[in-house]
Amino acid sequence: MKKLLFASLFLTVLAKAQDNKEVAVADSTKAWSIVGQNTLMLNQAAFSNWVGGGANNVGWIAGVNYNMTYEKDKDLWENIVILGYGMNNTKGLGNRKTQDIINLSTNYGRQISGHWYASVGASLLTQFSAGYEDGNNPDAKKISNFMAPGYVNVGAGFTYKPNDNFTMSLRPANARWTFVGDKDLQLAGNYGLKHDGDSSLFQFGFLGTAQYKLQIMENISLMNSASVFSNYLDHPERLVLSYGGVLNMKINKYISSLITLDLIYDHNQIKKTQLKQTLGIGLAYNIDNGVKRSDRKDNQTWK
């Protein structure tokens, strides 16, 4: 949790410092665009002599979501930072984790034709703390932890970016490592591990990713992200699929309501579709500054 709060504070200070600059900046700085959101969502329920029943509970979800893009001449460098953590305390049940994600990625491209770039990129996906069966009950069986699993992708291919709202990357050459750093989880079959005691799994194949922002109304936007991975080395037909959607309904400058939906299918995790959905209202501080592609006449295209 301390890591998340520190990262949120650091990114906010960094963005505000840039926003408040009054002196002339170098051309390289003008090429940066920083779009981000810091959120703290709260929920609470209380009961007293309520015939319908219910348990007192209070919960929170904190997160940061930043996209930092450098674009100048033929260079395109996109960096994404997504961190989130949440807890809920219910009377009689205690604390339960409701959100936990670390998602970092970077992608550099060199323009080759129109809106196409030859690109290389890397990403890391894991979580902050342990996860358990039985509704994340700490007394139940542990099923995940920090870097257990942890997914690292490194690859090369092509990126297509026609405007600020859409980016697609296709990597026909992508190395994917699955790390299981928790010794309690290093069992054959867990996250695709071949033998007891193994701490990693190497795969090589095709990775495709896409992000699309849809502005539904003036203060309502939907951010979509999706990915697909196929392992050339073993059962390429077993695709690893994921989708994430964030519906942001802005109430005013500092208050927003967020609805999130995450879907995952990974044969090495569980042979079922995984679903996670959250709904919250609370504080949201947005950062949106720098040079946008839509501001540049040489890059205007479909919206």
Rank of each mutant, 00 (worst) to 15 (best):
K2V: 07
L5H: 11
F6I: 12
F6N: 12
F6A: 12
A7L: 11
S8V: 08
F10Y: 13
L14C: 09
A15Q: 03
K16Y: 06
A17M: 13
D19M: 05
E22M: 09
A24Y: 09
V25K: 04
A26H: 06
D27T: 14
S28E: 08
T29S: 11
A31K: 02
S33Q: 12
G36N: 00
Q37M: 10
T39A: 06
N43L: 10
G52A: 10
G53M: 08
N56Y: 03
N57V: 08
V58L: 12
G59L: 03
I61E: 06
I61H: 08
G63N: 05
N65W: 01
Y70D: 00
Y70T: 00
D75S: 14
W77S: 02
W77R: 04
V81S: 10
G84T: 00
G86H: 06
M87I: 03
M87P: 01
K91S: 10
K91R: 13
G92H: 07
G94E: 08
R96Y: 02
D100L: 05
L104S: 02
T106C: 04
N107D: 11
N107V: 09
Y108S: 03
G109F: 03
S119V: 06
G121Y: 01
G121W: 00
S123M: 05
L124P: 08
T126C: 07
T126P: 14
F128N: 00
F128G: 02
A130L: 02
E133G: 11
D134A: 15
N137C: 09
N137D: 15
P138F: 06
P138Q: 04
K142Q: 13
S144R: 03
N145E: 09
F146L: 10
F146G: 05
A148F: 03
G150A: 05
Y151T: 11
T159S: 14
Y160R: 00
D164T: 03
F166G: 02
F166I: 14
M168W: 08
S169A: 14
S169R: 03
R171F: 14
N174G: 06
F179E: 02
F179C: 01
G181H: 04
G181S: 13
G181R: 08
L187K: 15
A188E: 10
N190T: 13
G192D: 02
G197Y: 04
D198F: 05
D198R: 03
D198C: 09
G205K: 07
F206T: 04
L207S: 04
L207E: 01
A210E: 08
A210H: 01
A210N: 02
A210K: 01
Y212Q: 09
L214R: 07
M217D: 11
M217L: 13
E218F: 05
V228A: 15
F229M: 04
L233P: 08
D234W: 05
D234T: 09
H235R: 13
P236N: 10
V240I: 14
L241H: 02
V246Y: 00
K250D: 11
I251P: 03
I255D: 08
L258G: 02
T260R: 01
L263M: 15
H267N: 15
Q269T: 15
K271C: 04
K271D: 15
K271R: 15
K271T: 07
Q274Y: 08
T278C: 01
T278Q: 13
L279V: 15
G282L: 10
A284T: 08
A284M: 07
Y285K: 05
D288P: 11
D288E: 12
N289C: 02
N289Y: 05
G290M: 00
R293Q: 12
K297Y: 12
K297D: 14
D298Q: 11
D298P: 07
W302D: 03
K303A: 09
